[in-house]
Design a protein around this nucleic acid. Structure first.
Lengths: 186, 186
DNA sequence: CGCCGAGTTGAACTGAATCAAGAAACGTGG
DNA sequence: CCACGTTTCTTGATTCAGTTCAACTCGGCG
């Protein structure tokens, strides 16, 4: 069985049955640095829990590479639009460091939800967390200056500034690389 | 039984059992114009499906009244943070016109999910729709000009421009009332 | 009729983007 | 392990979209 305690969104006490079931449809996968785990335009087949390393979700908007999500140890990562709508994803997933993951096949997960409806609960709770994250991100983008957005991210996820190229941080923060550089220089 | 065909997020063919169950925990409620249905700082007890009228979700950020959601006929409205986290909401809900709703008690809904886990599916599908909406909103705010955001909303929900005061549209679009006025004036 | 909030219009200001050029870091092959 | 070319980062000058502030108009309602 996999060690799902590595995944912060699961509460082990409440969900050991689910974890057993999950283990049966999961497998270890390791990817080298700067590797495209999932390419946009295809349906994303897996949901990944990162046990080591760091990765990002991004897409191209008018030729610009926009990062929308970072995931490090204990985080999960997937092409969320594909997972939700079961259609080709506009997002790609790329490792930033060499990355070790527990990969859960999404079709198998759907089958599990059908067979054991009580596990739907975890799908819902997981989406709820994602939703809250997204709401905070909107607040941030709509109501704060570049400096404030930088400060917020720095306090929430300081390790990103050590491990991720600035250009990706800049697009994630909704500013140009130049602006981020100037903010850092102070 | 209530006519849930009035709610676009439910597919009647797939979910008639769920609709029967939902009907038993729902009731009609009508609110006058400019009425606060739910006040921030309290836990939101209901989830509303609007059958007539229009309402908005808003909150105060540094004294400014920010609208984050509009709902008209066939839409649902609730204080989403309260619904998800079962805690005091930072959002308020206010009618813009006289509004008729089907009100579903959230505690009853939770009990229903516990008793009939197969209904969790609807909770998940509903959240998925919300999530997709939110992702589109982030894209919009982060990557488009005020003019483009105006154009997008005008094509998606033209009726808002007839029925909602401009100041609320402006805050929803992430711009000042002055900027919106200038854009409209062209 | 007069008031007040909402909407409009103009002028000045500003945060951040763009454009440009140079410096530093990176990885790739010899 | 170094040399080279490419990408990333920094720094400066300029521009621009959108905000702020202020004055004025309009429309609804007591």
């Amino acid at each position: 069985m996999f060690d799902f305690s590595l995944f912060k969104n699961l509460n082990l006490h409440e969900s050991s049955d689910f974890i057993s079931a999950l283990s049966e449809i999961a497998e270890f996968k390791t990817f080298p640095k700067n590797h495209i785990i999932h390419a946009s335009g295809s349906i994303c087949s897996h949901f990944y829990i990162i046990t080591k390393g760091i990765a990002r979700v991004f897409y191209f908007k008018e030729e610009k590479d926009i990062t929308v999500h970072f995931a490090a140890e204990h985080d999960s990562i997937t092409a969320i639009d594909s997972l939700i709508q079961r259609k080709k994803s506009k997002y790609s997933i790329e490792t930033i460091e060499e990355t070790e993951t527990i990969a859960v096949n999404i079709n198998s997960l759907e089958l599990l939800f059908e067979k054991e409806p009580q596990f739907e609960r975890f799908g819902r709770l997981f989406l709820q967390d994602l939703y809250i994250d997204l709401v905070e991100r909107i607040d941030d983008l709509q109501l704060h200056t570049a400096q404030e957005r930088y400060d917020t991210l720095l306090s929430k996820k300081p390790y990103l500034f050590q491990r991720v190229p600035s250009k990706h941080l800049a697009s994630f923060l909704g500013m140009t690389a130049e602006t981020l550089s100037r903010i850092k220089g102070k």
